[in-house]
Design a protein around this nucleic acid. Structure first.
Lengths: 197, 197, 197, 197
DNA sequence: AATGAATGAGCGTTCATTCAT
DNA sequence: TATGAATGAACGCTCATTCAT
């Protein structure tokens, strides 16, 4: 009986950890953090209940880990990645990034929306994502300014609101709200408005 | 000598019932249905825990009562009230109604947004508000058509999404997102877009 | 507005008290003391919940009142009423009395059987009916002795057991166990047995 | 390093389950189902309250499990086990079986008597034990027929009533009603009566 | 005498968390 | 690392009892 190689063991550990995070994300997104039990997480992740608490110190720790380990997904949204594009191309690229995140990680977005509506978690999330959010806002504000906006602050807000609204509906009923036509319309409305100015 | 007069008794009952509903709405909106305990409701409503269950058969019954007894608040949003207005005036009036509801009943809107994000409650809420929602959607679609929209369906959706996004942010941080400037900007964007067509 | 005459008032009070006792007896007999709520009693007695506690100091007080106010019903069973009868006639009369009580007051008998099976109430009931029970036992023992029994103690017990068994079945399913044929058979078995000696 | 062996784990689970069933049976028998709290069961079974509900879905489930898992104890009473015996030997054997069950499982019998007196549980119990009861009754009826009974139905009922009556008294006060002398007397009465015919 | 709204201790049950293996 | 039996605080809810009228 040779001991499991350290590498394999670590890989298994990482896998079970990932399974727990994935299961939790799905459940938190669909049922909410409070309504999700650790039993359900264990069942969905196909691990024992005990293992959850060897990976995470508490149920809340799972939630925070989900948040922390997914912050980087927002990076292409928050940070300008290609400086060679024109402002218009940049905003197209931004919207594409956002819609892409929505399409590939609907549960993450849904969970964000949930947490944002929550008195106690909102603040925590805000703190952990503050820097990113500020970067995002300043980036969008800047883009609108470059595109000739007279009120980049409000344009920026409305832009953000629209994305939140799309997310809130798409994540709960993707079949009812097909993302591609909505995205195309988003572009049309936005450029009609911006050109007018 | 005699029992409490029927009128007084009924008034007392109605008052305590209202207190429970008010407290519950606030807590459900801010903490979520699952995270709110009946103890908290009782404390906030300044009644005993037992009284809650002499008014409502379960915690869920409180939630459903809140929904059912607030449906009529959506009426001015769902139903065209003044036929003498022009399409433009009508949409202004509609947005005013919506923003007004948001300003006067932020907790109700916040709760709706929460429930809409929830897998199990979404369906229940959907069923109870189906008729109203259909009326609202057909009304908005019609208005966009009258205003020359080439794609009233998508315009209607975007309109709805924008309102959801505004609501999601305003209800959690009214100080951060002042409703009046946002409303004005909403008008400006919308009419710029519509006129262009 | 003349005050209600004292007599009428007292009569009303007695009536509501009786209604509570009747309703309680039925419910205690069928559902058991613990499983019966004061709400149910009030509903069945068609009085308010408050009135129950103006007549009785507690739920238990209702139970004890039922017991105390029905002790006299056992008198013809416990006490020899007609000294002119022969031993055989006496035992026939006794069985008739017992079967009659069973027929007219099945709920009272059923409640007694229940309380007798209960660890805590058994003792209380025993104390309150001790004198009566002793009179009954000595009476039956005596009768068996007069009828030539060689072991009046055990005959007396078996007699009592048989009545308990009949009661336990008749009170829960009177249609299944018709009392008259059972009584006739009871007589036959008993006299066959006694004659043999 | 490794989780508790499957065998040990299953044994632990079976033991705690049995402890809960044993404690519940005792308490249900002595205090009644409604008057017994899950706290008491946990205390008596020396387990935590939570463990009860990992074994059973509800308090009622404990009750039904007790019933279902003890049905086989009635088998020697319901079913003729030795075909080589004479009718008289058979009835002696039957009574011995019954008295033996009473002596070894007084709480089970006491609980049966309680449930039989109960409006709602009677029906449930009846359904679950219907087959067995019918076998028992037809067996006893047959025996009485073979022993020359002119009315085996009523003889069978009286036999059953007598056993119920003995049970009702023995289970609550075994010291007051010594089972052996009572059994002997039961035999004497029965055979005196049967021979007479 | 009578009402029923109101109370709160305590019920059955759930669930995050621990721990022996 | 991994298990799942075990825990107990806290949950939703019930119910005997009180009290203003």
């Amino acid at each position: 009986m040779s001991p499991r190689s350290k590498k394999l063991s670590e890989q298994m550990k990482a896998e079970s950890r990932k399974a727990i995070l994935n299961a939790s994300l799905k459940l938190f997104a669909k049922k909410g953090y409070s309504a999700t039990t650790t039993d359900e997480i264990a069942r969905k992740a196909k691990v024992s209940k005990g293992l959850i608490f060897s990976h995470f110190s508490s149920k809340e720790d799972i939630l925070f880990s989900i948040i922390d380990e997914n912050v980087e997904r927002w990076l292409p949204i928050a940070i300008d990645t290609d400086e060679n594009l024109s402002p218009k191309e940049k905003i197209i690229s931004l919207i594409n990034s956002m819609m892409n995140l929505l399409k590939t990680e609907p549960d993450l977005i849904r969970l964000s929306l949930r947490l944002n509506l929550d008195e106690s978690y909102r603040k925590i999330i805000e703190k952990r994502g503050k820097e990113l959010m500020e970067k995002f806002l300043s980036r969008v504000r800047n883009l609108f300014k470059q595109l000739g906006s007279k009120n980049p602050d409000l344009d920026c807000y409305l832009f953000m609101f629209l994305f939140d609204g799309i997310s809130a509906n798409y994540t709960v009923a993707p079949d009812l709200f097909p993302i591609e036509p909505i995205k195309e319309h988003f572009f049309k409305v936005m450029f009609t408005y911006l050109k007018k100015k």
